[in-house]
Design a protein around this nucleic acid. Structure first.
Lengths: 243, 243
DNA sequence: CGAGCCGTTGAGGGGATTCAAGCTCAGTGG
DNA sequence: CCACTGAGCTTGAATCCCCTCAACGGCTCG
């Protein structure tokens, strides 16, 4: 599993120490405040974990013993309503911390499911507990992450649940642009996934996407990936706001 | 201002020490972990603050120096979309901690506005900073509050933004029941406020409420307050889920 | 190659919005 | 005292957006 990473160099097996040192997200990552010596002690306890699309990382109510940072890919959080249908309530991407509630300690609050291929760093709860005792700065970093998640959740309400189907789809595309890949492509959800995010029927989602493709806002590619014209997307959103 | 509280006894002016000691929400409040001696040091720094309906506690982007716990009443969080209309993204009630983001330190993330008459305890940021240094337990309590806010935000997405207008109104009433008053009455939002919470027109909100009143789920009272039949509310939600 | 999943498109119906008109009620001033 | 006013609430009618039901095509995979 350690080999299955973008950090791999010249086909050699990759040690966790190297992963952390070279980690592209280190600056924004949980342990960014630690010096190299501090990182040394951390390496051995952190594992890489991969997640395939639609694969579940953990379930709501599960009592886990680890939290995760996302190295690459997109993860979504689902919740089942009393009606029995699944609703996607939030997403997370590169650099985001997820499953923080195990620190309280508390069961996971939502299901975490892979949207794309995902690479995660698995951080045991005990490790964070130990580090927090010695390094108070880490605590502030943790609180920042919590607030960030809360802020994104509020933004989700304001963006993904408001207005016409077209506006919500446009807002979704704008959100997905935040997790744009190296080759400018974004993850384009399946229609039933859009349905669960934006509270609309799969047919409506399909119609909106088809229309946006005809309008040149969107360029579909293979395997649930697409490319967006940022200017045309913004223009379409402006029109939506005006009307 | 100290006199303007439900804790007042026999008309005597109320000292903050008494307020904290007798505080009904102490168990669930931020400083519940502190012993009486610890509380003593805290009293002098905490002020009571009241908030009238539609009055704003703080604005989004404002750099404040205090966080608050809610003693009585309901507070809502608003955010303005790019379209220019206000959207209510979350609510908080008795015992909830709000404005925690000042601890990071960071500007307030949303507008906080009173729904009912509200009584708050104003806690300076500096006080929390000092206490955290001496009492690590407090830090855990803070994290619990953050997670709780996050959890409620996710629940808001799943409940208030999903399904038919009728379902969303029913879910809103269920949520408001959580903040039920001493006399079994709840805050019944104005129709335009419901509109901002549930993303529907004021007319639709009015129609739904009128119908629920005819159905006996709801008993309107004076001044934006009402009483709900819990069993009928649950029954109505069951039907909604089945259909 | 048939089966099944996913996406697309069409037709019809229903729920929500929009536009519009009254209604209640509290506050105001003649 | 009461008309006047304006804000909030309600209700009706027409329109429109979205959902439902349905059929079909492309694709993968056993």
């Amino acid at each position: 599993m350690l080999m299955n990473t973008t950090m791999q160099i010249k086909g050699e097996p990759l040690l966790q120490a190297q992963v952390c040192t070279f980690c592209e997200v280190r600056r924004s990552a949980l342990f960014g405040a630690l010096d190299d010596a501090g990182l040394e002690r951390v390496h051995a306890r952190i594992d890489l974990r991969t997640l395939a699309p639609t694969e579940r990382l953990y379930a709501r109510g599960e009592t886990g013993s680890a939290l995760y940072t996302i190295r690459t890919g997109v993860v979504r959080f689902e919740r089942v309503t009393e009606g029995g249908d699944r609703r996607i309530v939030r997403m997370a991407g590169r650099g985001d911390l997820i499953g923080q509630e195990v620190l309280l300690p508390q069961a996971y609050a939502d299901e975490a499911i892979g949207c794309t291929n995902v690479e995660l760093c698995r951080i045991p709860r005990s490790l964070v507990d130990e580090l927090v005792a010695g390094e108070p700065t880490l605590m502030r970093e943790l609180m920042r992450r919590w607030q960030q998640s809360l802020d994104r959740a509020a933004a989700w309400v304001a963006d993904m649940t408001t207005g016409t189907a077209r506006r919500r789809v446009l807002k979704l595309l704008a959100e997905l642009q935040r997790h744009v890949d190296a080759d400018d492509s974004i993850w384009l959800p399946r229609r039933d996934e859009m349905s669960a995010m934006l509270d609309m029927s799969v047919e409506t989602a399909s119609r909106m996407i088809s229309r946006l493709r005809r309008e040149g806002v969107l360029d579909a590619r293979t395997h649930g990936r697409a490319r967006v014209h940022p200017e045309r997307l913004d223009a379409a959103l402006q029109v939506e706001h005006a009307g």
